[in-house]
Each structure stands twice: as C-alpha cells, then as structure tokens.
Design a protein around this nucleic acid. Structure first.
Lengths: 251, 251
DNA sequence: CGCTAGCTTGATCTCACTCAATAGCAGTGG
DNA sequence: CCACTGCTATTGAGTGAGATCAAGCTAGCG
C-alpha cells in the first residue's frame, strides 16, 4: 500500500480511510531510480510530486565552487517534493542516496484532492511545514553546535525518524551515508567527520560502521546534540523512544 | 487595505479581487505590539495567525545557554505565522524587532477560506513554502559562506524583499537591527559583525549606520554573498533590481 | 591482481571567537 | 546642569575549532 507510511506516527495528521483511498487513486505510477542520481533539478518546472516508498533521498544545493550542501534527507513515507505542487519549480536539487522506489502524484490530481478534500489538503500542507521545521532545526544546528554536537544532533534526528517508520528500534538503524555525505549534511569536511566519529566511539556514545549506526548511550547523544524532537511533530510515544526515555515496545 | 502587500510581486500568486475580499473579511482585529516583545512563544498552542502590516518581526530559537538564533526575519506583507494554522503550535518563538501593526486571522476563518477557495489555499500554501525556501537558503548561507559573505547575502536578501514591497529603491533601506541582531541572524558575534561591516565600508560595498543600509556597489555585494534571488520567487523585474542589473523604475 | 572509493592519521594554518577595554549616546534623575 | 546608567559600537590581543594539505590504509570489485 503506497500510503502506508505517510503521516505515520505524526501529530495532527491521522489520515482517514477515504483520504487514503483518494490518495492511492491519485498515483500515476511507481518507478525506481538508481542510487546517486539527481531526480529533480533546481529551476526546472515540474508537474508531478514524488512520495518516497523505499530507500533514501536528499535535498541539496551546490555552491559556485561545486561543493554540495545537503539541506534535507528523506526516508520512506516522506512526500519528498510535495512542495513542488505549490512552488512549480524548486530552488534546490533532489537526489537519491540509495536505489529508491517512489510513487508519482501528478499535480492535476493533487489539485482535485485539494479542492475536494480540504482536511486532507491541510494535512498535506502540514507535511510540507514539517520539512520547514526541519530546515529551521538544521540552521539552528549549524549556528549553535560544534562539530560533535552537529553529528550527534543529526544522528538523533535520523534515529527518531527511523523509529517513527519502524526502521530503528531506537538504538540501531542503517544510514546509507558516507562520511563525506555526513560532512555535507553538517557542514564539516569528511576528515573532521572522521575524527568526530572516532571521538563518539571512544566516548562510548555510538559507533558508525559501513552504513550501520549503533547507539550505545542515547541519553548522552541527545544531550550532546541538544536534541529536542518537538519539531518533528511525532506522537509522544515515538518522541519518548527517540529521547531514550523508554525502550521501544518492539524490543 | 490589510492585504495590500500580501503576495505582492510574487510569482504564481496573483490574488484575485474575490480572494482579497474574502481575506479582508476574515480579519478579526488589527493590533499593535511594542518593539522587542515575544509575540508567540514556542510550544504554546495558537488558534490565530498574524499578517504583518507595519514594522519588522523575527523568528528565533534559544539554545540551552540562552543565546538567541534568528531563523527568519519578516517584513510588511509577510504572513508571519501562517504555518501555525496547520502546525497548531510552533517550534520557535516569534518576536518584534520594532513596534508593529499586525492583522489577526482566526484559524476557523482560514479553514473556511481553505474549503471554499482552493486556489487561494494553494497561494497561502505557496507563501509558507517561500518561508521554507528562505530557511534552506539561510542554512546554505551558514554552511557555505564566510562571515563577510553571510552578511552580504543577508543584506542582499533584505534589500530584495524591501524592493518587492516598495521600501527600498534597490540601494538604500532602513534595517532596524543592531550589530548583535545581525550576529544572531548570521551566526556571528557582534564584535565580528562590526569588523565585517567596517570591511564592507572600507571596500566601498555598503555602509550601515543606525538602521540605515546604503549600498554603494550592489553587484559586488551580490557576488560576495553569492546571492541568487530565485528562492524568493519574486517577479523578474524585482529580481533584476535586486541583482543590481537594472535601476529601480521608481528612481 | 590492480583500481578505486572510502576511511584514517598527522602537520600546519586561519577565520572567527573570547576576553578586555574604551568611546559615544540616549535617557533618567538629582 | 551634571552624574549615572545602560545600550551600542569600536578596537586590540590571544586562542582554538575546524579547514587544508599530504599520506597511507582498507576492502570491495572489475
């Protein structure tokens, strides 16, 4: 089912059966894209938005020197470029980290949904605003945390989002990013990311080895990254697991 | 007229007479707030959104050490916390920089507008997505520019936005921010902001004196800040003025 | 087997921070 | 009228987190 993870474990956003059916009926096609491709290029008009089903995607910008900067990472259940529906063209690129499977929603269909189901429209709007909240938090992370705090915060965010979609038990999840990718997300050189990761390992907070993140001390990681998951607008039970206050019920 | 500057000079967003009338009818009240107040506090549920009519406002977060970080600045015509309509409570504070006049829109009224006027709803959605685009650009600015570039980029953005609402001729506008405020916006200490401003002055790019910004060499400032106004989704004539390619028609 | 992408470590450099001190200016009250 | 307070702006000296530059190392894969 295409919409299984959409709005999953979110506040304000429980999706009704009718809304789900309408969404399912609006999918034009499901396609696969290989890893490390640019799926949507900045400035090019688009008339379709993509819901991520499997794999991970990024939003990124390039500066004049060609260096990439991530401004967002997407996991399954994210409506990656829903904002293109209202914006028509994007101010950044969208790419794949891994091979992905995505569902395509033509903007004509979204317009019909918006006119016919105002409450669904409000929930979709809500989804794009969560992205905005994550952007704010990323800016905050860059402006107020040191290198190790940024990495810790990023790992906490990804862990929380993976918990919400059932892909982390709260301590362990796969993160298919290289150290260079992490650097692009946290604005650090891959060299410095490496040193920070070593420090996290030596301090017994967490280990990153070949796409696997294992968190030994989530409370300490949360404190180091000053992580407060409110901005993700998850249900309280997800937030509690993400903060390390309770073990995941699936343990 | 309350909605005079709303969506002014924006792409995709021309507002119809009927939409304008519906919006005007949705205003519950117009109120004034003194300078340097917190208007909406993080985490407190809100049921009203505010359209800024006069003055300037900020979005900001506080880190555990009490330091403030701006994640947005608002000018007249901005629907400052429209996103609260879908989010219900905010993940950041909203405050005033100057004394302001704002129009209050109850969320009940917005819900009726959203159900009755889907095209207007899409335009309001669009507005909140511009804020998201600015957040992305702020993150990008923090991650890819040095101190002088950040200040230059910020000044270019504010100049562009003031041009769009007729409060800058493209070279001169009032910016009621102290050097400490600029530091909070660009993640710099006020001391370093001071040095950067001196450098901008000595290089003949622009001068900042007691809330007045005068740009001597806009092209150079644009280059220094790597400023590309696409993300603001302004009409092309505004963008051209903001880039210093043409003089403002009102000169 | 060699190639390449990703990871690891060391040495040096630099941008912006911190700490410290001073000046200017508006408002306030004696 | 001046003294006092507080905020903003300015300048100098020393420091440090993270960048850059330079090498090796490791593992997967043709």
């Amino acid at each position: 089912m295409i919409t299984r993870l959409l709005l999953h474990n979110r506040l304000n956003g429980d999706i009704t059966a009718a809304e789900r059916a309408a969404l399912e009926a609006s999918v034009a096609e499901v396609i696969e894209i290989p890893a490390r491709q640019v799926a949507v290029r900045q400035g090019v008009p688009v008339d379709v938005s993509t819901l991520l089903l499997e794999g991970m995607m990024t939003r990124h910008m390039e500066d004049p020197s060609g260096r990439r900067h991530l401004v967002g990472v997407h996991v399954p259940g994210d409506f990656v470029d829903l904002h293109a529906y209202a914006l028509r063209k994007l101010d950044h690129n969208i790419g794949t980290l891994t091979p992905v499977k995505v569902a395509m929603f033509p903007h004509g269909s979204l317009a019909r949904l918006q006119a016919g189901l105002p409450e669904l429209a409000r929930k979709l709007w809500f989804l794009t605003l969560i992205d905005a909240a994550m952007h704010r938090q990323w800016a905050f992370r860059l402006s107020s945390l040191t290198a190790i705090g940024r990495i810790a915060h990023f790992l906490c965010e990804m862990n929380a989002r993976m918990v919400a979609i059932g892909q982390s038990d709260g301590r362990k999840f796969t993160l298919p990013m290289t150290q260079a990718d992490l650097g692009e997300a946290c604005s650090l050189t891959s060299i410095h990311v490496n040193r920070v990761i070593r420090e996290l390992r030596e301090e017994g907070l967490c280990t990153l080895r070949s796409s696997l993140v294992e968190i030994q001390d989530l409370s300490a990681l949360v404190a180091l990254g000053q992580f407060q998951p409110d901005y993700l607008y998850f249900n309280d039970d997800v937030a509690q697991v993400a903060l390390g206050r309770v073990r995941n019920r699936y343990d």
